[in-house]
Computed example of a mutant assay.
Amino acid sequence: MGTALAALGVLAFSGTFPATAFALRGFDPYFVAVGRAAVAAFAAGACLLAARAPLLPPRAHLRAYIAIALGVVFGFPLFSGLALAAGASVSHAAVVVGLLPAATAVTAVLRAGERPRPLFWVASAAGAAAVTAFTLVRGGGRPSAADLLMLAALVCAAVGYTEGGRLARHTPGWRVISYALVIAAPVTVPLAVVLGSVVPHRVTADALAGFAYVSLVSMFLGFVPWYAGLARGGIARAGQTQLLQPLLALVLAWWLLAERLDLITLAGALAVLVCVALTQRAR
């Protein structure tokens, strides 16, 4: 059951990069990053009120919720959006973020105090080397600014996933992400209002659809089954479903954005897939 729930979350997250690309056609990347969190905060608050649950998390876990907010409410949306705005294609970003399962596993190891076998570290290093080689080939011998932004997004997501998975062991997954969104609302809502009024926009149907998806699905609804799956199936085991995310994102980039999938991109995705699979197996 845990793996199935996590897979449902991965399916929702796989549309994040294509939807962000659509949203950026009409909106500023900073507005997309902050605005999606602000919209999701209202949805989360409404759900908490409807369930008659407290609007704020227990003080004992406040630091963990702040870490989730910094990781997946602020960090990942901002850095990934800026990477796409800086010129990274959706397929390119999907390959780089393919290291996310391994990064999440490393974070879980550090937080849980586990001691994996040497194969775990060898495979993690090989995956990092594969992504580095891919970015260097694409960047003509050096990583681009978009690559560095994607790596920052990857680290932020790994921290947010791990902390959320830990909290979801004793708190329903939908409340975990709801609390993270609500405690971030005093920052995201005013910033979204200011950016919405001062930054020029070119509102189109596809931009609105993309913004709606990243706000309600990527930022809120996708985390409900994802955190529940991590809690029930374990961060290591259920996290293996993330292996599907880069491949699904590549297919969506080809289908929705007509991006060409060349051999270098497919080879990079496959290399990361194999390395991350070995890290999960080694755990």
Rank of each mutant, 00 (worst) to 15 (best):
A112D: 15
L99V: 14
R59C: 00
G210K: 08
G71F: 00
W255D: 12
E114V: 05
L263P: 01
V224C: 10
F223L: 02
G45L: 13
V187T: 09
Q280T: 11
V109I: 14
A21H: 13
G141C: 13
S197W: 11
T107L: 08
T279W: 02
P118Q: 06
S215C: 07
A277M: 09
A192M: 04
L195D: 15
P101T: 07
A83S: 14
R175I: 10
L181Q: 08
A158W: 00
V193S: 00
I68C: 02
V10N: 06
A128V: 13
R111Q: 14
V203S: 01
L250Y: 08
P101G: 12
V10A: 12
P186H: 03
T104Q: 11
A83N: 04
Q240E: 13
A126F: 02
A69M: 10
D206L: 12
P118C: 09
A253P: 00
A6F: 08
Y30W: 15
L167Y: 08
A157I: 06
A108Q: 11
V189Y: 11
P186C: 04
Q242L: 12
A145V: 15
A6R: 00
W226P: 03
V159W: 01
A128Y: 01
V90D: 02
T3A: 11
L191T: 13
I66S: 07
D28T: 09
F74T: 03
L48V: 05
P29Y: 12
A129F: 09
G9H: 10
R115E: 15
A125D: 02
M219A: 15
G35C: 09
A269T: 12
S144H: 05
T204N: 04
T16M: 11
A102L: 04
V97E: 13
F211A: 11
W121N: 08
V97H: 09
L247C: 10
R117C: 04
R63E: 01
V203Q: 01
L48Q: 14
I235E: 13
A67E: 05
G87H: 05
Y179Q: 07
A145R: 02
S89C: 03
G222D: 14
V159F: 08
R281P: 01
A158I: 03
E114K: 05
L250C: 13
Q280C: 04
I177N: 11
L208W: 04
L261T: 09
G233V: 11
A282E: 13
A103D: 10
P186I: 03
A249R: 00
L55V: 12
P57C: 01
G2K: 01
L5C: 14
D28G: 10
A108P: 03
A168R: 07
L261P: 00
R260C: 08
A4G: 08
G75W: 04
L8N: 07
L256H: 09
I264K: 06
F27A: 10
I66C: 06
V90F: 03
L278P: 00
G160A: 07
A44V: 07
